[in-house]
Design a binder for these strands. Structure first.
Length: 320
RNA sequence: GGGUCGGUAGCUCAGUCGGUAGAGCACGGGACUGAAAAUCCCGGUGUCGGCAGUUCGAUUCUGCCCUGACCCA
C-alpha cells in the first residue's frame, strides 16, 4: 500500500508527475473530497469517468456543478458529443497531455473517477495492440446477422483457441475484440495481455479509495437518484433527445439514460424508471467494488476521513 | 359473533394426490486491457404462521390458536 515510486539508477526519485488518485463506487463522495483537497493546495482535477466526458449529460452522470468547476479547474469533462467516439485509449492519450501540461505548471494533480479500466490504463498503460477497427466491427456485425449468434465465437475458437478458452461464448464484445486483434496482428490478445498486466508505469501516484458499508452506500445511491429527478433529470433527457441523440448512441444506453429514454418514449412509468435507475446504479456500484477490491495499491478510507486522507497524501507528495 | 379465502426465500407467488420445496424480482460473489455506467459468468435451507393429533413419516390431512383480507350479522 505504498505510492508507486520509480527510482533512477542513482537511487533518487525520478522527476516525473505525481498523481493523487481518488477511486471508489458511485455516490460515495469522490467529487466533493477531490474538490476540497484540490482547493486547499491550488490543484486541478482530472475526471476518470467514462460518462462525464459526454456533453449535455450532466445531471444523470452526476457531474460536478458549474459552481464546483469554478472552484477547481476540471479536465476531461464535456469533451465529446453523445454520438462521439470515446474509449479507454482516447482517455489515456488525452490524460497524458493534460498531465504533462499540469506538471509543467507545477500544479498538484488529482485524478478522480469510478471507471476502473480508465484508472488502470492511466497508471499501468494499455495493451500494445491495435485500436478498434470500425470497418472490421461492421463486418462482424453483418456476419452475425447473416450466420447467427454463435458464428463469431466459433470462429474465435478456430482462430484463437487460447482466447476462446478465456472468453465466454455469450460475451460478444470480448469475442469481437479478440478477433479484431488476431486479425490485425496475428497475435492472441490473451498472450499480449499476459505479457502486459498493467505494468507500464509512467507516473508516480497514491491511490485513495473511498467506501462505506453496503447499506449506507445504497442509501446514498437512492437519495442521489431522487435528487437527480428533483433537479430535472427528465427534462435533461428530453433536451438530449431533442438535440437528435438517441439509443443508438452509447451513453444513452448506459444505466441511467437507458431507463430515462424508455420513460420519455412512454414505455416505462416514472416510478418504474426511478426504481430501475436505482437498481442499476446499485449493481454498478457493486461491480466497481469488485474491480477496486483486487487492487492492492488502494488505501481505503471513509468519506468523512478527509483530514486523515489529506495527511496520508501529503506524506507522499514528492518535493519539487 | 358467524362465514369464505389466505399466511411457503427479503418481496410477489407456484407446488408437494403425505416422503421436508421452486420461479420471477430483489440480493450476493466473480470476470474484465481501445464499447467499461458497456459486456459477461456463477449463486436458492427457507422453524413451508404456532401448538397438538393421525401416520413409519406432516409444509401437505385433522383440531385448536395467532394473524391478514373480504362477506354476513
Amino acid at each position: 500500500m505504498t505510492a508507486h515510486i520509480t527510482l533512477s539508477p542513482r537511487g533518487d526519485p525520478l522527476r516525473r508527475p505525481f498523481l493523487t488518485i481518488i477511486a471508489g463506487p458511485t455516490a460515495v463522495g469522490k467529487t466533493g473530497l477531490a474538490i476540497s483537497l484540490a482547493e486547499r493546495c491550488g490543484g486541478e482535477i482530472i475526471s476518470a469517468d467514462s460518462m462525464q466526458v459526454y456533453r449535455y449529460l450532466d445531471i444523470g452522470t452526476a457531474k460536478p456543478t458549474p459552481e464546483e468547476q469554478r472552484r477547481v479547474p476540471h479536465h476531461l469533462i464535456d469533451v465529446v458529443d453523445p454520438d462521439g467516439e470515446f474509449n479507454a485509449a482516447m482517455f489515456v492519450n488525452r490524460v497524458d497531455t493534460i498531465i504533462q501540461a499540469l506538471y509543467q505548471e507545477r500544479k498538484r494533480i488529482f485524478v478522480v473517477g469510478g471507471t476502473g479500466l480508465y484508472l488502470d490504463a492511466l497508471t499501468g498503460g494499455l495493451l500494445r495492440a491495435p485500436g478498434a477497427d470500425g470497418e472490421l466491427r461492421d463486418r462482424y456485425r453483418e456476419e452475425t446477422t447473416r450466420y447467427g449468434k454463435g458464428y463469431l465465437y466459433e470462429r474465435l475458437k478456430r482462430v484463437d483457441p487460447a482466447a476462446a478458452r478465456v472468453i465466454h461464448p455469450n460475451d460478444r464484445i470480448r469475442t469481437i475484440r479478440a478477433l479484431e486483434v488476431m486479425e490485425q496482428t496475428g497475435q492472441s490478445i490473451i498472450e499480449i495481455r499476459e505479457a502486459h498486466r498493467f505494468e507500464d508505469h509512467a507516473y508516480d501516484y497514491i491511490k485513495i479509495g473511498l467506501t462505506v458499508d453496503r447499506d449506507a452506500l445504497y442509501e446514498r445511491i437512492n437519495t442521489r437518484v431522487d435528487r437527480m429527478v428533483a433537479d430535472g433529470l427528465v427534462a435533461e433527457g428530453r433536451r438530449v433527445l431533442e438535440r437528435g441523440y438517441d439509443e443508438e448512441n452509447l451513453p444513452l444506453r448506459a444505466m441511467t439514460y437507458r431507463h430515462l429514454v424508455s420513460h420519455i418514449r412512454g414505455n416505462l412509468t416514472h416510478d418504474d424508471m426511478v426504481r430501475l435507475i436505482k437498481r442499476d446504479t446499485r449493481h454498478y456500484a457493486r461491480r466497481q467494488l469488485t474491480w477496486f477490491r483486487r487492487d492492492g495499491d488502494i488505501k481505503w478510507f471513509a468519506p468523512g476521513d478527509e483530514n486523515m486522507i489529506s495527511r496520508s497524501v501529503e506524506s507522499r507528495v514528492p518535493e519539487r
